[in-house]
Design a protein around this nucleic acid. Structure first.
Lengths: 355, 355
DNA sequence: CTGAAAGCGCTAACAA
DNA sequence: TTGTTAGCGCTTTCAG
């Protein structure tokens, strides 16, 4: 019975009461010190801090939450994790959260087909203080519940039609406009456009930018060249393949409304025996990390993904601090990044061959 | 005073007591039903379930945790988020967790330089039921605390020297061995090796595999061709550049011990005016998603990243269920993925030119 | 099979 | 400035 180091598994974790004892104060005071309450005698504060350190006290999160304190956890709803898009945004979020000492809990939307689960996890369960929604696809119902409860949330790269949400986005229409203009300046007039699902605001805006630019350049919009898409690589591949094999008069450039589908398009173009950009130019949207790694390096419209994450997180934290701030929309600038996937039309080599 | 829909912000969330009332039972019984306790009368169970559904009851997580229930949250410690490596593993983890109805809370290790913070977040705070450590760099101290408390955790793609941890890894030595052998078969004898930090077990194992293969092929190991690295792209770039510019007799192939540094090496090789694989072959390790997207597509040793995540999560869940299972090591197979970044030496075109 | 009651560890009035 | 006292919502003995 002298030593018991073999069997005692669960050495009780040190609680606020232990600290109170060790420092000759009460739990309430310890709590005050810990939460930075102002009116605590200097000497008391010191004694408490010393005990905290000596005992290695760490607050119990569930207890704190339950009692009405901050959990310092925010929910992060993402569609998936295996592409650079989400990762880059998440990186920005994490940075902003880190400096405020918050941690994100991850909810992947692919597993929340019914609203209940997500709704449950995110709000009713009382764990998170706020929600960051990365490019959420299913909106209305969730958002209504959130707003109804005055639960802080911000949308990233997606807009709520009601204009009542906090959102961080980028100049989608403008970005698409410039990209299209760039293509036109290169001499292209037959430009295919792979759009995203029209339930997604950014997809609509990009399409609009494309059409506007064409119109402003005096090029008629050809509906046959506007391809149904869903922002997925596979879709970009298939839709492009179909187009190129259709035998109709081919486009000389393809504007994929996100990089992922642009990658798919690149594969298809090459499989059909064309080269990029000599035969067909390709331009994307997002500038995910892979864009500068594919061959040829993808010319694309850059969204400041990491920054968007950072801004969104800050915005959320701000709302958590002041629950009554009015909804705010933060639109960051896109930027055309010219790399190697677009060339002039007619292509240089044609001119040379013709000469 | 008739309607109050304008000012009542925090409509109380429905609790277990509400369900108890609505179903004419007690909180205890509701709790039993919810936790799947066997000995509850069928009719009672039905009444409770009905009330739960009707009221939209959702358990309060903090309360449940505090009272000693499961939080269904596991901590996921990752080095960062902005590369495919972590994303792919996380995707696997998320899948396995999802089917067990768990959610991951994300801890990024870059912000936990001191052990305290992480230790605090992960264990003492009472939120998580277990921990998944993706390629953790700092080990000993943490792991000791974890083990001491019998806190469930599993290491992914990193090994604990004490052999007392649960780990999921892959056949690093063997993979590197095969890759090297492949290079040798292609005719290469001057092979540079960019290694990872030797504090990382996988880095040591890969280096060992490289050396073993060379030896077995009767090729002397040239220490000058073993380059210090750290698994980062930037490092792969710099170290390769230095090597190529050193003017010494150049390698005909480079084995980067992870894909990220291989990408860096590719950049450097091209910047120095060589082409891949004609002048210099490059092989990587991991097979992150980008590997098949770069140009030329990277030949590499595939680690089943997603599977590793899945297996690790399952392993953890198992330990959470049975806290006394002995430490287990799960070593998954690597596989050589031959793509376009390696060629024969001397290169074909040389032979043709010579002919 | 079910209810009553006692906390889990913390925060937030309310006194002192 | 500090201590006392209630809970937060749930799980879990302990009695029926």
């Amino acid at each position: 019975m002298v030593d018991d180091n073999s069997s005692s598994n669960k050495r009780r974790t040190v609680t606020i009461a232990d600290v109170a004892n060790a420092s000759g104060t009460s739990g309430a005071t310890v709590s005050r010190v810990l939460s930075g309450y102002e009116f605590v005698k200097e000497s008391t504060r010191n004694r408490v801090m010393e005990a905290v350190k000596r005992l290695g006290y760490v607050a119990n999160l569930p207890a704190r939450s339950l009692a009405g304190g901050r959990s310092r956890i925010i929910g992060l709803l993402v569609p998936n994790l295996d592409n650079g898009y989400v990762g880059t945004i998440a990186q920005g979020i994490d940075q902003a959260l880190a400096s405020a000492n918050y941690d994100p809990i991850l909810y992947t939307s692919h597993r929340h087909p019914g609203k209940e689960t997500f709704y449950a996890n995110a709000i009713a369960n009382g764990l998170t203080e706020g929600l960051l929604l990365v490019a959420p696809q299913v909106l209305t119902t969730y958002l209504d519940s959130l707003r109804e409860r005055n639960f802080p949330y911000v949308l990233i790269d997606q807009t709520d039609a009601t204009e009542n949400s906090n959102v961080v986005e980028s100049t989608n229409r403008q970005g698409a406009y410039e990209a299209t203009q760039y293509l036109v300046k290169l001499g292209h007039t037959r430009i295919a456009f792979i759009r995203g699902a029209l339930t997604v605001q950014s997809a609509k805006d990009r399409l609009q930018g494309f059409k506007d630019a064409l119109e402003d350049c005096g090029i008629p919009v050809c509906e046959d060249l506007i391809l149904e898409g869903n922002y997925q690589q596979q879709n970009g591949y298939e839709t492009t393949k179909t187009l190129l094999q259709s035998g109709e008069s081919l486009p000389t450039a393809i504007f994929a409304s996100n990089d992922l589908s642009a990658f798919g398009a690149m594969d298809a173009v090459r499989e059909c025996g064309f080269s990029i950009p000599e035969d067909i130019s390709i331009i994307g949207f997002d500038d995910v990390p892979q864009s500068s790694m594919v061959y040829p390096k993808l010319t694309t419209v850059r969204q400041p993904l990491e920054l968007m994450g950072k801004v969104a997180a800050r915005m959320l934290l701000e709302r958590i601090g002041c629950p009554n701030l009015p909804p705010q929309r933060n639109t960051l600038d896109t930027q055309l990044i010219i790399r190697d996937s677009c060339g002039p039309y007619p292509a240089q080599r044609d001119r040379i061959e013709q000469a």
